[in-house]
Amino acid sequence: MIAGVALLAICTLIGQLLGEGLGVLLGVKANVGGVGIAMILLIAARMWLKTRGRYNEGVSRGIGFWGALYIPIVVAMAAQQDVVAAVEGGPIVLIAGVGALLLCFSAVAIISRLSGTPETMDEIEARESREAEMAIAAGSPAPITPR
């Protein structure tokens, strides 16, 4: 289990480091994509371990535990926002915030529509479980789905 937590921590730290480095390189006072880089590292590490058969229950549980704690952590994050300042900002904050929000929501809707109807999350899960069942019925081991 500690192996999974350690792998997760190493990926996160390297991601942050590269993100900081990218920020310095670009002359920006911020971490550029640290979390995203870390996520890509973790996905790569998992695929590498899987091909060598070293991605065992313990590793998976160590990472899964923190993934499962994600929502409680978001609740804690919400509980420490400066909500008072956001409310006190007055009309300029209200109008700029809501305006930006509505525009971005519509942009999401437009871009999503423009590019056709993709499978929804429910459909993807239904298909994967169907495929797994069919594979079992055919007597072969379940296919390795990239999950």
């Binding site: 942050q16 870390a38 996520m39 990472i63 899964g64 993934g67 994600y70």
Partner: peptide, 10 residues
């Protein structure tokens, strides 16, 4: 927060 988000990459 970042730690947990990265974990969801799996």
């Amino acid at each position: 927060r970042d730690f947990a988000i990265v974990a969801t990459a799996c």
